[in-house]
Design a protein around this nucleic acid. Structure first.
Lengths: 138, 138
DNA sequence: CATAAAACCTATAAAAAAGATAGACTGTTT
DNA sequence: AAACAGTCTATCTTTTTTATAGGTTTTATG
């Protein structure tokens, strides 16, 4: 299950994408629109900014905005940034790999094999689907 | 990411399947073999028993054993039992559905749509692959 | 230039979940 | 009767998640 943090990030990004024509958007506007605690959202947007996904402007008329078109922002990137690994086991994670503690030999562990397939199936979607694909359908 | 509980359960089930010919297996044997805290493992095996996956026998010569052949125990069942939802969002979970708090209308939410596809892709594997498929490869 | 607006930053707190342990109880075998 | 091994319930510790607080910096504008 994705954390609230990641879920909020998606909703915030959706709002930013759908209002990209209006210039920088206030944190407070997003918070209200999506029912998210404003202070919590602040941290999330900051992380997205530090990761190069969002830009911001301070002072009056300021706010946050997307640095790239929605179709260039893969969902996997957001999940990894805020939640970490997408794989179900550390020993099959591409980006957050950790050795398995409970099996003697990964090369021969059947769990490793199946969970790798699950990871691939999920990534096939999460790395090709982008912010553009999760915008509100008409 | 799967919890330790679920990971331990898989390793315990693997051990039980691979030693099914030896009659009931002691908790302590599994714990030692797989480097799992014995008391923690105790709780896990009990849950598996209460779910009808394992049988047990008390007293001397007792222990745990599989109630069904490994190929009839789907991985999804174990995950759901110990970890809950397999889906990435509550609003696309088949077994643990909860309404989405942050979107106005699920029918129109694009996130819902994509995460449903991820769920389907994962389930396609996790509901067809069984304990038999994760046994140690030769 | 003063003021207000709005993001930035760091720290902390509260709540929930995960992971682990303790000890007495029940049923079985010999 | 004694030893064995699972059963049950409760609690505890640690970690992670979620959320809040409050001061700092930057920018626009009158």
């Amino acid at each position: 299950m994705l954390s609230k943090k990641t879920q909020y990030a998606f909703h915030a990004l959706i709002h930013l994408a759908e209002n990209a024509d209006k210039g920088p958007i206030l944190i407070s506007e997003i918070a209200q629109e999506k029912s998210i605690s404003i202070k919590f959202l602040e941290n999330i947007l900051l992380e997205l900014k530090n990761a190069g996904i969002l830009g911001s402007k301070k002072g009056k008329g300021g706010g946050y905005y997307l640095l790239k078109p929605p179709k260039e922002i893969a969902l996997a990137k957001i999940i990894r940034l805020l939640d970490g690994a997408i794989a179900l086991l550390p020993c099959v994670s591409l980006n957050y790999y950790e050795r398995c503690e409970n099996c003697r030999d990964e090369a021969v562990c059947g769990l490793n094999d199946v969970m790798g397939k699950v990871r691939d199936a999920s990534l096939k979607i999460l790395e090709t689907k982008t912010l553009k694909d999760i915008l509100t359908r008409d």
